[in-house]
């Protein structure tokens, strides 16, 4: 394993200029498409899981085409941990807010109507949107961090 890593570092395997330029152009569009899939999940195939995986795959693509250090400049390890915590907390926090908000039930988003009157049905639609964003954040950061940790043998340094 160490031998392969050394070879990769010396010969720059799979890192030709064409691949790097193409990835550099493609990655913003992939991330935009991931955000679209998350946000447009009410009206088309999509949602938090799918969009989160697409966003995570953009960081995996950056790591494969460049280096792990280069990908960690875009999304540092600390920011990744904060985002995964924030995603899980957004979901469970919304659910708990429903429960403590004027006698609503756990995960019943129409109870949030008493906090900000938009109508119970609109709140049910909007609550689904909020938890989809939470799921998307958690899936994105955790799939990216799984790849980074497995690829760099736990060092989060140079990587593959």
């Amino acid at each position: 394993m160490r031998l392969l890593q050394d070879q990769t570092a010396e010969q720059k395997l799979g890192e030709s200029l064409i691949i790097q330029t193409a990835v550099r152009i493609l990655v913003p569009f992939i991330q935009l498409f991931g955000l679209y899939v998350i946000v447009h999940g009410h009206y088309s195939p999509g949602g938090g899981f799918q969009g989160g995986v697409i966003l995570g795959a953009s960081f995996v693509l950056l790591t494969l085409a460049f280096d792990q250090k280069f990908a960690l400049k875009y999304m540092s390890e600390k920011a990744n941990n904060i985002l995964s915590n924030a995603g899980a907390l957004l979901f469970t926090g919304t659910a708990t807010l429903c429960a403590i908000c004027y006698g609503g039930k756990f995960l019943d988003y129409s109870a949030l109507d008493k906090l900000l009157p938009l109508g119970p049905i609109a709140w049910r639609s909007f609550g689904i949107f909020v938890i989809e964003v939470g799921v998307g954040l958690a899936v994105m950061s955790i799939s990216a961090s799984l790849f980074w940790l497995l690829g760099s043998n736990g060092e989060m340094d140079e990587g593959l």
């Binding site: 949602g47 899981f49 995986v53 799984l146 497995l150 736990g154």
Partner: peptide, 20 residues
């Protein structure tokens, strides 16, 4: 199955970590 696929990914991740 949407939830099961993501659980499959995380199971694979944990298993690969233990294998490493």
């Amino acid at each position: 199955m949407l939830t099961a696929i993501v659980v499959a990914v995380s199971v694979t991740g944990v298993a690969l970590a233990i294998l490493l």
